[in-house]
Design a protein around this nucleic acid. Structure first.
Lengths: 128, 128
DNA sequence: ACTCATGGTTACCTCCAGGTGCCCAAGGCA
DNA sequence: TGCCTTGGGCACCTGGAGGTAACCATGAGT
């Protein structure tokens, strides 16, 4: 798998970026930090539903990729700030385009799903 | 969660599209069908490593969303053709932009990861 | 002495995406 | 009679993503 070529001559390593963006919380973290630099607790407060652990894990992964940067001030209590790097800002831009398209089509897709489910139910009813 | 607003006023339902694209095989299926209409077995042959079940599952989901279309010919042995819809073509376009960006940055990200891991190893060595 | 806040870490558990393998219909063909 | 084909369905299993909760150091406030 690791050297599988993407159809059209694309590199499958690019899938890693889609995976990173596609996990449960990265998109929220990137988008939230894209607006302003924030501390850990404030970030947690803004992203409704995220657990402390998942925020830590997500931040670590994004930091490892160089998408966000972590700044620690050696004071007590600890003060840690997170912000997007230029690389992360680029990613945010690319993702925003995808999300923007998705928003314009989300209703179409939901109608498609409903229609599909209805057809499936009819099939089951007729032959089930 | 279902009514969580996306930072910046975005709708979290858009996450569903990212999830669809972010799963393991959808991207390959869309990209492969984006090149030409294909039958089930030929599609399976082109996407290296996919299992029969996962191809079926992925195709069903994409069909349900209206991203691909399934055409069945009632002959024996069965003949079924899959192709992308205009909606799927749009999605492919949006995703291609993201993948394109990812490809130009994949080496940067890998260097970032290596540097991060090295720093982490030094920390462990010094204090572990 | 006790409590609170920050920014975590760790152990533990659950759930499901994804993988494997067997079964199926129906006709052709030897 | 038995085996090949296509396009699946179904049962079962595992690994890992993600959730829960407890613990931690340190200093400041009272």
């Amino acid at each position: 798998m690791s050297d599988q070529s993407f159809p059209g001559g694309h590199d499958c390593r690019a899938r890693e970026i889609v995976d990173r963006v596609g996990d449960k919380w990265s998109l929220y973290v990137i988008a939230t930090l894209g607006e302003e630099t924030l501390r850990f607790t404030e970030l947690k407060r803004r992203i409704d539903g995220i657990s402390q652990r998942m925020l830590t894990v997500t931040l670590r992964n994004l930091e490892r990729d160089g998408i966000i940067v972590r700044t620690m001030y050696p004071v007590m209590p600890p003060r840690v700030e997170y912000s997007v790097t230029p690389l992360g800002c680029e990613l945010l831009g690319a993702v925003t385009a995808l999300v923007g398209w998705a928003e314009t089509r989300v209703e179409t897709i939901e109608k498609n799903r409903a229609a599909y489910d209805e057809r499936a139910a009819e099939q089951t009813e007729a032959f089930g």
